[in-house]
C-alpha cells in the first residue's frame, strides 16, 4: 500500500450549490459569498464533468442545500453518474417525506450541524430559536429513511470543554459519526474571531480530550479533520496524505462554479463551467503551493512538521496572508 501520491483529480468535491440560508450562524464562512447560482442545465453538465474526471463523491453544502429547489434532481443526476452523494444541512427543513425523498434521490449520508448538547447554546449560536430541536428531529427522520447520519460540530468558545457531553449526546442520537470541525477564521468566523476562537493552549487541551475520547469510544467514529493533531502524535485515520487534505484529496466548488482549494480559502483557482477540472487540479499554482509547503517561522526545525505540514492552510492565510505560514492555532 502506497502513500502520499499526487492524484490526477480530487476524490471528493465539497459543492456549495447555493448560498441561501434560513439561519444566521455566528461563524458562517459563506454569508458574504455571491448569491449567483448556476442554472439547472449548467449545474447538471458540470456534475458530468466531475464524474468524468473520476471524482468519487460529492458533498453538497451551502448555504442550506435544502433551500435549493433543484436539490433532488441534482442528487439524482449525480448518483446516476456513479457519484456518491452526501450533504450537510442544518436540518430545519427535514421531515419524514424529505428524508425519504433524499434517500430515493441517492443520498447515502447526511450530516446535521449541532454545536451543543444544550438547546439554548446551539440556538443562540445558529441564530434561530428551536433549531436544536429541529436538528435532532432531522436525525430521526434520516435514520428512519435508512440514510447514514452524522453530527457536525464546529468547535469554538461555546463548546470546547464539553467533549464528554457532546459524545454522550451523539450516542443518544444514534449517529455513527461525530465530526469535530476546527473553527476557521473565514467569513463571519473572521469577524467574530475574538469572540469564538480559542487560544493555542486551549486547542491543545481540546485535542488532548478529543483524541482520548476517540480512543475510548467504540462504535462511534469521532472525526478530527485538523492536521494540527499531528503535534499530539495523531492523524485523521484513513487519510492518504499528511497535513491538510484540501487540494490533495478534495476541492471546493462555490454556487457560481468557482473552484477554491477548500471552502475556507477564498482564492479562486478556476471555474467548473469554463475550465477543465483535471487541468486546474494539476496546474494550479495555489494547489501546488499547498501540496509543497515549506516550513517557515516556528515550523522551521519543528520535529512534527513532516506530519503536520504547517497545519491548516486556511487559518494561516486568513490570519497572516500566507497559506504557507505556521497555523495560528499551533501551540508548539
Amino acid at each position: 500500500m502506497q502513500s502520499n501520491m499526487v492524484l490526477e483529480a480530487p476524490l471528493t468535491i465539497n459543492w456549495a450549490i447555493n448560498n441561501s440560508c434560513n439561519f444566521a450562524c455566528r461563524h458562517c464562512y459563506s454569508r458574504g459569498d455571491t448569491h449567483e447560482e448556476l442554472p439547472r442545465d449548467v449545474l447538471l453538465a458540470c456534475l458530468e464533468k466531475v464524474a468524468k474526471a473520476g471524482v468519487f463523491s460529492v458533498n453538497f453544502g451551502g448555504g442550506e442545500p435544502l433551500l435549493h429547489p433543484g436539490l433532488l434532481e441534482i442528487a439524482r443526476h449525480a448518483s446516476g453518474l456513479g457519484l456518491r452523494v452526501s450533504m450537510n444541512s442544518n436540518g430545519w427543513l427535514m421531515d419524514r417525506e424529505m428524508a425519504a425523498a433524499l434517500r430515493d434521490a441517492g443520498f447515502t449520508k447526511v450530516g446535521i450541524s449541532i454545536d451543543s448538547h444544550v438547546h439554548e447554546v446551539h440556538d443562540r449560536f445558529r441564530g434561530v430559536a428551536g433549531s436544536h430541536g429541529r436538528a435532532v428531529a432531522a436525525l430521526g427522520h434520516l435514520a428512519e429513511a435508512g440514510i447514514t447520519t452524522s453530527i457536525s460540530t464546529v468547535i469554538c468558545r461555546i463548546n470546547h470543554t464539553a467533549i464528554d457531553d457532546l459524545v454522550a449526546f451523539a450516542r443518544d442520537q444514534g449517529v455513527g459519526q461525530l465530526n469535530f470541525h476546527n473553527f476557521k477564521c473565514s467569513g463571519l468566523g473572521l469577524s467574530h474571531k475574538d469572540e469564538l476562537d480559542l487560544s493555542p493552549e486551549e486547542w491543545k487541551e481540546f485535542y488532548r480530550g478529543a483524541l482520548a475520547a476517540r480512543e475510548r469510544e467504540k462504535g462511534l467514529d469521532i472525526s478530527l479533520d485538523d492536521p494540527i493533531i499531528a503535534l499530539l502524535g495523531a492523524r485523521d485515520a484513513g487519510s492518504l496524505v499528511k497535513g491538510s487534505v484540501c487540494g490533495k484529496l478534495s476541492l471546493n466548488i462555490k454556487a457560481n462554479g468557482d473552484m477554491t482549494p477548500c471552502g475556507f480559502i477564498p482564492v479562486v483557482i478556476g471555474n467548473i463551467v469554463r475550465d477543465d477540472l483535471k487541468q486546474v487540479w494539476r496546474d494550479s499554482a495555489v494547489l501546488e503551493k499547498m501540496r509543497n509547503k515549506k516550513p517557515t517561522g516556528k515550523c522551521s526545525g519543528c520535529s512534527k512538521y513532516e506530519d503536520c505540514l504547517g497545519g491548516c492552510s486556511a487559518r494561516a492565510l486568513a490570519l497572516t496572508g500566507d497559506l504557507n505560514s505556521p497555523d495560528p492555532h499551533c501551540w508548539a
Partner: peptide, 10 residues
C-alpha cells in the same frame, strides 16, 4: 486509489 468507509488506500 481505493476508498471505502472513510479509509483510503493507494
Amino acid at each position: 486509489v481505493l476508498f471505502s468507509g472513510g479509509t483510503m488506500i493507494s
